[in-house]
């Protein structure tokens, strides 16, 4: 369970997040919705440790933790970026196994076995040796999900998972997210796409733009 208490974030004096409170229960899906510029992505970046917060506390299973400095413990957060950010110089398999071998110190064989299993699970069999430029947008996104999952995160965060994809792929993303939920993954999804948010959310957080 992830809890945020009174999270505040300013950029150059401008208040972006004003005392955000939220709780995500294990195995549930929280969607964060709101208009552009409201701070949805900023909130996600704070949760995933890419931005320092100005004040407020994070708790994981009741224990306080700091996402920015939480680098040497277990992986808490997996992140699927809006533009995926696969590493173009590595094949799909290398993208997925890089961190497990270098950070979790898994053997190459172990990491590759896990990667192949996850790739198959997300309908990416046969793509392991391709480079990212050879994949479609939807495939890239699924590789990004697999890459995050291979680090065995406690939570998986998505930033606008539908915005870089064709509209007809929305259903596919939805299915993946629900499938991962069925397997017990806790997920946070930032989106401006209300129908999409409503169809996957257990819980919804609205972020309003500050004037």
């Amino acid at each position: 369970m992830l809890e945020l208490k009174n999270i505040t974030k300013r950029f150059a004096g401008k208040l972006i997040l004003d005392g955000v409170n939220l709780t995500v229960n294990d195995g549930q899906i929280l969607t964060i919705v709101g208009p552009s510029g409201a701070g949805k992505t900023t909130l996600l970046r704070c949760i995933s440790g890419l931005e320092e917060t100005d004040s407020g506390d994070f708790f994981l299973d009741g224990q306080p933790f700091n996402p920015v400095t939480n680098r040497n413990n277990d992986t808490v957060m997996g992140v699927v970026f809006q533009d995926f950010q696969l590493f173009p110089n590595l094949t799909v398999l290398q993208n997925v196994t890089l961190a497990p071998t270098m950070v979790l110190k898994q053997s190459k064989a172990e990491a590759e076995a896990t990667a192949q299993r996850l790739l198959k699970q997300l309908n990416l069999d046969g793509k392991a040796d391709l480079y990212p430029y050879e994949l479609s947008g939807g495939q890239k996104q699924r590789v990004a999900i697999v890459r995050a999952l291979a680090m065995r995160p406690k939570l998986l965060c998505y930033d606008e998972p539908t915005s870089a994809l064709d509209p007809d792929l929305r259903k596919e993303v939805e299915e993946i997210i629900l499938k991962l939920k069925a397997e017990g993954m806790t997920q946070i999804v930032v989106t401006h796409d209300m129908p999409f948010a409503e169809s996957i959310a257990d819980q919804m957080l609205r972020v309003e733009a500050k004037s």
Partner: peptide, 8 residues
């Protein structure tokens, strides 16, 4: 950032 969240 992508490398950072993978804890490299």
């Amino acid at each position: 950032e992508s490398a950072r969240v993978l804890r490299l």
